[in-house]
């Protein structure tokens, strides 16, 4: 066991997979010489040469190229520097990547990974702080994962690279320095589509994604002081969703709070709330409470930004409402 940072865990996964399979390659803006603006790909260029490429600023084409490269025998890992740039990739995701396995009657697979990072909290402004999870999770044919621990970051990235279908790999700019234990000897990939109980509890289920899992854990700690036992579930995979984990927890606690850093309206929390209603309605003792970003652009100033991005206090308040 070693305690390493989230960014190092991703780097480790990339090294392991590139060593294991020489069709894996990494490309994106600033990923080679500089090692990535978040240092996730540091040192890979030295180790793997031309399989790690700096690219022009051409997200739309790079994403489309990843799609067809994956169809023709390689396993591209494309880094899109900010999730806010995903709209540039969207045509390649919606009209290309997501369709061919089905539309071509399963003649081709598409093992590519699009890594990106989103989220706010550090004053990056309206074009570099969004969480567009719902936008990509909406698309049939894509998988979307969002690990929060270094161990999951490594194991899920390995799983994503080995997956025969396109995987959108969502990171968070505030997670890269998070430290956690990683068993370096265990090189097994994770199973995509499995949630994790981050904290067991009995009174209310808090479903959270990405950095919001950490906020949910803080909220659970605060609620414990009030005698409320909250269960925090780290979804890890936004699509496909671990329905069994969700329904099992809600069946025990009968109360649910759903948390995602993206916008509320038509957002990922709306899907979670609807999913619970579809599959666990009769287990609910209160309406599902949603915690999400306010429906407005993400402002720059700290006093403004913290009003828009949800935090542990919002989650604890939602849990209290659910239990009222």
């Amino acid at each position: 066991m070693a305690t390493i940072r989230y960014a190092e865990a991703l780097n480790l996964a990339l090294r392991e997979e590139m060593a294991r399979d020489d069709t894996v390659f990494v490309f994106g803006e600033d990923v080679a010489t500089y090692g990535g603006v978040f240092k996730v790909t540091q040192g890979l260029r030295d180790a793997y040469g031309d399989r790690v490429r700096d690219t022009p600023i051409s997200e739309q084409t790079l994403t489309a190229m990843a799609v067809t490269a994956a169809m023709t025998g390689t396993r591209p890992v494309l880094e899109i520097m900010y999730a806010d740039f995903l709209p540039l990739s969207l045509d390649a995701l919606v009209n290309q990547a997501s369709i061919y396995h089905y539309i071509w009657n399963e003649q081709v697979t598409m093992p590519f990974v699009l890594r990106t990072q989103g989220g706010g909290g550090v004053g990056t402004g309206a074009q570099h702080a969004k969480s567009l999870d719902a936008m990509v999770a909406h698309i049939p044919g894509l998988k979307v994962v969002a690990p929060v621990t270094p161990a999951d970051a490594r194991a899920l990235l390995k799983a994503a690279i080995r997956d025969p279908h396109p995987v959108i790999f969502l990171e968070h700019k505030l997670l890269y320095n998070l430290r956690g234990e990683v068993d370096e000897a265990d090189e097994a990939p994770a199973e995509i589509g499995r949630a994790r109980v981050a904290r067991a509890g009995r009174d209310v289920t808090i479903l959270a994604t990405s950095r919001m899992v950490l906020e949910a854990q803080k909220a659970a700690e605060e609620l414990a002081g009030e005698g409320v036992s909250a269960e925090v579930i780290d979804l890890r995979s936004l699509r496909p969703l671990d329905l069994d984990a969700i329904t099992a927890s809600v069946a025990r606690t009968n109360h649910a709070v759903v948390v995602n850093e993206g916008w509320r309206f038509c957002g990922y929390t709306a899907e979670l709330a609807a999913t619970i209603m579809d599959h666990a309605f009769d287990d609910l003792d209160a309406p599902v409470e949603r915690v999400a970003a306010r429906d407005m652009p993400i402002p720059y100033a700290e006093t403004l930004e913290r009003e828009v991005i949800p935090d542990s206090a919002d989650i604890a308040a939602a849990a209290r409402r659910a239990l009222a």
Binding site: A64, M65, V67, A69, T72, G73, T74, Q96
Partner: peptide, 20 residues
């Protein structure tokens, strides 16, 4: 049927061939 999409599509396949 997305006008222009055949261009990066072929370019991506060419990248795949070059890497292989």
């Amino acid at each position: 049927a997305i006008v222009g999409a055949s261009i990066p599509a072929a370019t991506g396949m060419a990248l795949s061939m070059q890497l292989r």
